[in-house]
Design a protein around this nucleic acid. Structure first.
Ligand SMILES: [Zn+2]
Ligand SMILES: [Zn+2]
Length: 629
DNA sequence: GAATGCGGGCTTC
DNA sequence: GAAGCCCGCATTC
């Protein structure tokens, strides 16, 4: 069966353009535009694309194709990805990865297999005022890793303990990486989608370790790691030693194919590790110029995340039509998300959504057959949780559509704590760094995405209502809302509320005239909501009270999470509800006649937050960490 | 001490 | 048999 992706091969050479465009945002605004991160992960180009069709390889293939095009090295591969690196790519030769990957014996000397160790997080999930989170790198060494667990959080103001968050991104097992060396290339294949935050960079961990050693040994330890990535240099092995070792391998290998274990072993040189300075750096330079997307869908490819470093003309040579690959999303109503992708148009033209661009991808890459969303009853069409193939593959999600791709694994069990403990904290460790997140899926794990679901609900609602009807309804409300507390008014508000959320919440939202609008800013890919209406009675600008919040359903009927999820509705549910309201602090009409509520950013000036702790609610003056981050 | 790779052996499916 | 995992060993820094 020919993969449907192949039919898009003619586009693949154009995809790097998209990739670069959104990489920029990822680097610049990873904290506030988590949608871009999703996009970053999702965008990919077929490594060996162009016109070649013999690149449909698998790491286990007996005959792996000879390639002429190579990928740039990617430290943070995530998803079901296949990459081909140059044989002289040092990072590839070192089998490097930003993820903490440990060697795993797969009884195949030709293919080096590694599995992810997850990440070390603070048990309190403490957050710095900078929005940073502790995310240590698990030691590769088992012994060292065990020692890490239970250690005090490096945050001086936190009494938490470090705990390992195991990776279960591949059918419940850790994500695996495979490396295979050939004469002309280094083949890499990743299986699974990390379901945890990124650990700190390898170089950072190494530096910290060295500092710790220096501290324990006194001031005399010389740190020689001053390379760009901060990593220490590792002495390259001598060629003679390499050859000697390799020859030993060859000698050990099969020679006679006598044993069962050796039957798959060839006489070729086994994987030989060559050691060079670690270099952990962004995949792309910061000066990359962002590119405005254009409203036309482009295909995508699940196979690769990198972009070609050969065979493509300069960025400026690409037509703009391809830039709108931004609007992919999963339609989990329909199919196994491993096998189907859809394109979602710009929100402003969603009425004619034709989500029929499917990207079939068989399971050659190792997708989990059992990892299927169980949310067929989920009402929000435009909410599409990120999942394994979606991340690996491409459903670029951006702020325009905000179609459900989450910025990170957010543990709402800890969200309360995030809020209640939100306070300036002093970093006493380099391990505290911006939390690099990965898309997340509440369906495959136990997390909810209330906010995105509300956004999706909003968009869905817009599809089901014409602007005219909405305006009409609002007008009617305005005309009859002399007494904003009247039952009629509230009912009208509920009726025109595209979210159709719990009436207890809706009735207490800012004003009866509250109106939803949204706009897409193509210059920065921000998706924003605009509200308009009258703001004459401050008393009406209240947010849901604790009582109202508590009246909220305690099941997952509105989260979209399956009933068997162990996640319950967030106690401070108001957070999600607030997404679509104008907070009191900024409810004054904007110059354009409406108060702007930004969805993609989380400014305290435009948001209202409440914390919940031990049964008490309190309004926060500070911007809490977004639950997605 | 830790990172990294190799590989024997065990278990599960 | 494939895959996951544990463990010990060796090498290197
Ligand atoms: Zn902590
Ligand atoms: Zn992982």
């Amino acid at each position: 069966m020919v993969r449907q992706l192949d039919k898009f091969s003619t586009y693949s050479s154009q995809l790097p353009f998209i990739w670069v465009a959104f990489e920029y945002y990822f680097l610049k605004k990873e904290n506030e535009h988590f949608f871009f991160l999703c996009l970053f992960v999702g965008m990919c180009s077929k490594t060996t694309s162009t016109s070649t069709t013999n690149m449909d390889w698998d790491i286990n293939d007996s005959n792996i194709p000879k390639v002429t095009h190579y990928d740039h090295f990617n430290d943070w591969v995530d998803g079901h990805v296949r990459l081909v690196y140059r044989p002289d790519c040092e990072e590839a030769r070192r089998h490097g990865s930003g993820w903490a990957m440990r060697n795993t014996n797969n009884h195949n000397v030709q293919i080096l297999k590694k599995s992810c160790l997850g990440v070390l997080l603070c048990s309190n999930r403490c957050i710095l005022d900078t929005g940073e989170q502790v995310h240590l790198r698990p030691a590769i060494c088992d012994k060292a890793r065990k020692k890490q667990q239970g250690k005090p959080c490096p945050n001086r103001r936190c009494n938490g303990r470090l705990e390992i968050i195991a990776c279960r991104g591949h059918c419940g097992y850790p994500v695996t990486h495979f490396w295979r060396h050939t004469e002309h290339a280094v083949f890499f294949q990743s299986k699974g989608v990390h379901d945890h935050p990124r650990p700190e960079a390898k170089s950072t961990a190494e530096q910290r370790r060295l500092r710790g050693a220096a501290a324990s040994l006194g001031a005399g330890l010389h740190q020689h790691s001053t390379s760009a990535g901060g990593s220490g240099h590792r002495r390259p092995r001598g060629l003679a030693l390499l050859l000697s070792r390799s020859q030993q391998k060859v000698n050990k290998m099969v020679a006679g194919h006598s044993s069962k274990r050796d039957k798959n072993k060839g006489a070729a040189m086994a994987i030989v590790k060559d050691e060079f300075p670690v270099q952990v750096s962004p995949a792309f330079p910061m000066m990359m110029t962002p590119v405005e997307p254009a409203p036309m869908a482009a295909p995508t490819d699940y196979n690769h995340q990198g972009h070609m470093d050969e065979g493509y003309p300069p960025i400026a040579a690409y037509p703009t039509e391809v830039h709108d690959a931004s609007l992919y999303y999963h339609n989990h109503h329909a199919h196994n998300h491993h096998q189907q992708q859809h394109v979602m148009p710009d929100p402003s033209s969603m009425m004619d959504s034709s989500y029929n661009l499917t990207c079939d991808y068989n399971n050659a890459a190792g997708y989990c057959q059992t990892d299927v969303h169980q949310a067929n009853s989920y009402p929000y069409q435009h909410y599409a949780p990120a999942s394994a193939p979606s991340i690996a593959g491409a459903p670029p999600c951006d702020a325009q559509s905000s179609s459900g791709y989450y910025g990170s694994p957010s543990d709402h069990h800890h969200q309360q704590h995030h809020y209640t403990t939100h306070q300036p904290m002093t970093d006493n460790s380099s391990s505290v760094s911006p939390l690099i997140t990965t898309p997340y899926d509440c369906y495959s794990s136990s997390h909810d995405h209330l906010e995105l679901k509300y956004q999706a609900a909003f968009v869905d609602a817009l599809e089901s209502q014409t602007n005219t009807s909405m305006e009409t309804a609002v007008t009617e409300v305005s005309a009859t809302s002399n007494n904003s507390s009247s039952t009629t008014t509230n009912d009208m508000v509920v009726n025109v509320d595209p979210l159709q959320i719990n009436a207890n919440l809706v009735q207490q939202m800012p004003t009866p005239e509250f109106q939803y609008e949204y706009e897409t800013n193509y210059s920065n890919n921000e998706w924003t909501m605009t509200t308009s209406g009258h703001y004459t009675n401050a008393a009406n600008h209240s947010y849901p009270t604790a009582a109202a919040v508590e009246a909220y359903p305690t099941d997952n009927s509105l989260t979209g999470c399956t009933s068997d999820s162990d996640i319950s509705v967030l106690p401070n549910y108001c957070f999600a509800a607030c997404v679509f309201t104008t907070p009191p602090a900024s409810s004054e009409p904007a110059s354009s006649g409406g108060a702007k509520v930004e969805i993609g950013t989380y400014s305290p000036a435009t948001r209202h937050f409440e914390s919940y702790d031990s049964g008490h609610y309190q309004t926060l003056n500070e911007e809490p960490l977004h639950p997605a981050l």
